[in-house]
Design a binder for these strands. Sequence first.
DNA 1: GCCTCTGTTTGG
DNA 2: CCAAACAGAGG
Length: 254
Amino acid sequence: MSQPSLIAAPPSHDHNCLWRGCSRSFTDPESFYNHMCNDHVGRKNTNNLCLTCKWKDCNSTFAKRGRITSHLRVHTNLRPHVCEICEHSFKRLGDLKRHRQTHTEVHRSQHKRSKALVVPDPAYWSKEVKNSAPSGTIPGKASSQAATLSAASYDLRAEWLAFPAAQSRSADVSAYAVGSGLFSPISPDFPYLTMHNDHSPGQMFSGSVDATLTGSEGYQNHVAEFLAEVEDRNHNPYNDRRPYSLSLFVFVSD
DNA sequence: GCCTCTGTTTGG
DNA sequence: CCAAACAGAGG
């Protein structure tokens, strides 16, 4: 069964090269981009370096190869840099890095009206989450001021069974669920949940579980309740749910 | 070639 | 007001 995803790459209309004199087309943006860099920009080595963009009516010229290859992103849909927190994608790494700042407490404090989800440490998240998930093992690192020791992510569409992060620790736990889709606010009387964002179609959902927990049982129960609540709401027909992808990130701090 | 910082423009 | 897209320039 296929589930349209709100966060998947945009529909696959072909990528046609409009470089003047070229009529090739590609099925994915990456090979398309590589084609332009290799076949049209060329290299100094091979005596075919072209520093003028001949895309359709674009005649931009550049002093260095790196400049024009960067410019070529304008003509492609290649967005290889994906925010690990909200899954927005970007053409340039620099844009993603700046975007990550919108997920910090500092940014929130400076831009009160920002609706970006705030997480404890986006930099740590971006580096470690993908490697540690879903096993969620606690890295053997000293507690930093960010106080982030472990993170795990779970796809609600898959079986989620283990929550290894805090199994044998006393810890404060923060859990952030991040996803795309249509969600209505979690019930305000749900005890361990606080909403950070407004909710409208297509907007990011987030919630946090903030509780001081003293053992894995309580920890797992709270997370289970949290996910059950989200799932229940997702299956509630009158809310016009669409399929979604939701990841739960769990941070454990000393 | 890659990274970063900076500034402008654009759009919601 | 906020954030993305993009270019210029320096290291």
